[in-house]
Amino acid sequence: MINLYQAKKGQNLRVVSVPDIGLLQNLGLREGTYVSVKNRYALGGPVLLRVEKAFSVAVGKDIATQISVKETV
């Protein structure tokens, strides 16, 4: 298990736990959600996710480090 900020571009992941932030929940980033890393940004930038192959969400570094994920195939 790693945190989201450690994930590499192109990796497919399953969300294990997310911090208790209303907007994350409402956007559909929840426990068990499948995501893939679309882009990463240097110098402390966000992680861009494709969530459930349906939509894209950018998550800032300081939240990404609090989201734990597991690699899937």
Partner: peptide, 8 residues
């Protein structure tokens, strides 16, 4: 300041 959470 809260970090970014933004749907694109």
């Amino acid at each position: 300041v809260d970090p970014l959470i933004l749907e694109v």
